[in-house]
Design a protein around this nucleic acid. Structure first.
Length: 233
DNA sequence: GCGACAG
DNA sequence: ATCTTGTCGC
């Protein structure tokens, strides 16, 4: 994956929404919903935070068995696109790809704080990224972008997230006092496995450890950046 | 036409 | 996502 191909798939600059939609369709053709991994030894979590005109992407890699942090890395870039529902992959993709290619450990599975195939044309961030980079990915979000499901009430309870007649993910009550989270395959992870992986990564919080820690890390970088900006003013 | 809409 | 005080409940 070189710089040019990276820009080809993730850079929203100078492109119309119609062109970006076409890129999504091209990536979706590559999505594989079968497990494309052997034993899971490492899991990564990716999340972004924002400050002024910049986007901060944080990636944390953990040992799958112990959930201990192995590596952390981040990237800061200027945002290239405003938030437009269903086009999030182009707003956060550049920064995510940048960090992903910098880490020294190639995670067996990467969990994103966004949608997978539970997207109008199946091009949620996790699905798009996984298809383009050809790696196993899972999407975990807090709100439903599309589809419908029965709301789980008890901790651990889950139901299928449906769109028309097909299943596009799961809705899981991960924590007693939190709203349910939405889980979906991205690429190279089956419907059943994405649920199992996320359940394994839950440690009493609303979000699975990989994305929970990535979210915290992204926030720390933002505060650090804010502090530096303030003292130079 | 109206409402919904990941982060 | 981000801003931001108090407040309700375990």
């Amino acid at each position: 994956m070189n710089k040019d191909r990276l820009r080809e798939w993730f850079d929203p600059q100078k492109r119309s929404l119609k062109e970006l939609r076409e890129l999504q369709h091209r990536a979706v053709e590559r999505i594989d919903l079968e497990d494309g991994f052997d034993r899971i030894e490492t899991v990564a979590g990716m999340d972004c935070s924002y400050i002024d005109k910049n986007i901060i992407c944080a990636m944390v890699i953990l040992d799958y068995a112990t959930m201990e942090v192995i590596e952390k890395r981040h990237a800061i870039q200027e945002v290239g696109l405003p938030y437009i529902p269903t086009y999030l992959n182009f707003r956060e993709g550049c920064a995510m790809a940048s960090v992903f290619l910098q880490v020294s450990t190639r995670p067996d599975i990467t969990i994103f704080d966004s949608c997978g195939i539970n997207h109008p044309i199946r091009a949620g961030m996790a699905a798009y990224f996984g298809a383009v980079m050809d790696v196993p990915t899972v999407g975990v979000s807090k709100k439903i972008l599309c589809g419908h499901a029965i709301t789980p009430v008890n901790t651990g309870e889950y139901h299928e997230l449906m769109q028309y007649e097909e299943q596009i993910g799961w809705v899981l009550k991960s924590n007693k006092k939190s709203n349910p989270i939405i889980i979906a395959p991205g690429n190279k992870v089956s419907m059943g496995s994405c649920l199992e992986v996320v359940q394994h990564c839950l440690k009493g919080y609303k979000l699975p450890e990989p994305t929970r820690l990535a979210h915290n890390y992204a926030g720390e970088i933002r505060e650090e950046l804010r502090r530096k900006t303030e003292e130079s003013a």
